[in-house]
């Protein structure tokens, strides 16, 4: 359950203030499938970053699963991020010197799970995302679709309640993009909240709830 009330986030460009988010009120129920659309600069990525606790709003309150997380310390926010939120990025953000398996293992290491358990969980994830044969490959040796599958496996290995995807198909061709979307939607079917930021209309329309943004405001919110 995500509850934003009067969230404002402004950036300064020279002496000009740009409000990426201007008093946003938004409620997303657990298990929803939401797309956030809008032209670039409309604030959709900033909204996603605030929801993912990567960015702090200048004002407003944010409640996650009934708890106010607005004023948590950096360390506490990191912990919430680790436990409840998974990120999928347009440019995958895999660590180039680590293999696919090692990339997927990262969140487990950060949480402090012992090596034996890490190994079985990584193997399960590799199998689930059809990557078992690519486990020892580095990102440079993987195709775009495989890279995004590794990234999704990594984002979901700690079973987060919300999966936040920022242009997840932006660097993929249409066919592979659809496959990745299908994968994300499968995860939604198992109960994960899925929030997808995109400027691709067709992709956005697949979501059950579609939010449109412009100049830091929500201009449409249709079920």
């Amino acid at each position: 359950m995500i509850q934003l009330s009067a969230i404002t986030r402004a950036f300064h460009m020279g002496d000009q203030e740009i409000r990426a988010l201007d008093h946003i009120d938004l409620e997303i129920v657990s298990g929803e499938y939401v797309s956030i659309m809008g032209p670039s600069g409309s604030g959709k990525s900033t909204l996603l970053n605030v929801i993912g606790l990567l960015d702090r709003p200048d004002s407003g309150r944010y409640q996650l699963d009934g708890k106010d997380v607005t004023d948590l310390t950096e360390t506490e926010q990191a912990r919430v991020r680790r436990e409840k939120i998974g990120f999928v990025f347009q440019s995958f953000h895999l660590v180039p010197r680590l293999t696919a398996a090692e990339n997927i293992e990262l969140p487990l290491i950060l949480t402090g799970i012992p090596p034996a358990e890490r190994k079985t969980r990584v193997e399960q994830a590799l199998a689930a995302f059809n990557l078992s044969e690519r486990a020892r490959h580095r990102p440079a040796e993987l195709s775009g679709g495989q890279r995004q599958r590794v990234a999704i496996a990594r984002a979901t290995i700690l079973r987060p309640t919300a999966l936040l995807a920022d242009e997840p198909t932006g660097n993929l061709d249409h066919r592979i993009g659809s496959e990745v979307m299908a994968l994300l939607e499968d995860l939604h079917h198992t109960g994960t909240t899925l929030i997808v930021v995109t400027h691709d209309r067709e992709l956005g329309l697949r979501a059950h709830r579609r939010i449109a943004m412009r100049d830091g405001h929500i201009v449409a919110d249709e079920q």
Partner: peptide, 16 residues
């Protein structure tokens, strides 16, 4: 830099 950003997004606190 981007790797550090990623680790933070994955939930690594500054101390890590």
């Amino acid at each position: 830099t981007s790797e550090i950003g990623l680790l933070k997004a994955l939930g690594a606190p500054a101390s890590d």
